[in-house]
């Protein structure tokens, strides 16, 4: 994983999250569509009430979409 840096984030959670997501995105091993799902629903300071359900649905849809592609 690309090195996560807190150099410029101070204690600001929003900046910390942005930095975490960005460093994961820079990592070649990262499944970016999955990262986008969890950063949209869960790794956010204002998650929806049903954020986990939405994230699970999106992850299942992603798996299904990838499963269909083999057909």
């Amino acid at each position: 994983m690309a090195q996560f840096s807190t150099e410029d984030t101070g204690g600001n959670s929003e900046e910390v999250l942005a930095s975490i997501i960005e460093s994961l995105r820079q990592d070649e091993a990262t499944d970016v569509p999955l990262l986008e799902i969890i950063s949209r629903h869960v790794i956010t300071l204002s998650p929806a009430e049903n954020a986990i359900e939405l994230a699970v649905e999106d992850i299942e849809s992603l798996a299904k979409e990838r499963g269909e592609q083999v057909d």
Partner: peptide, 24 residues
């Protein structure tokens, strides 16, 4: 096939969650 993809996503999710936890 979907299950297989979901298993792969689960492994990757574990990794991303672990990396996020580590970063925090």
């Amino acid at each position: 096939r979907t299950k297989c993809e979901l298993r792969l996503l689960q492994i990757e999710l574990d990794r991303q969650v672990m990396e996020t936890g580590k970063a925090v």
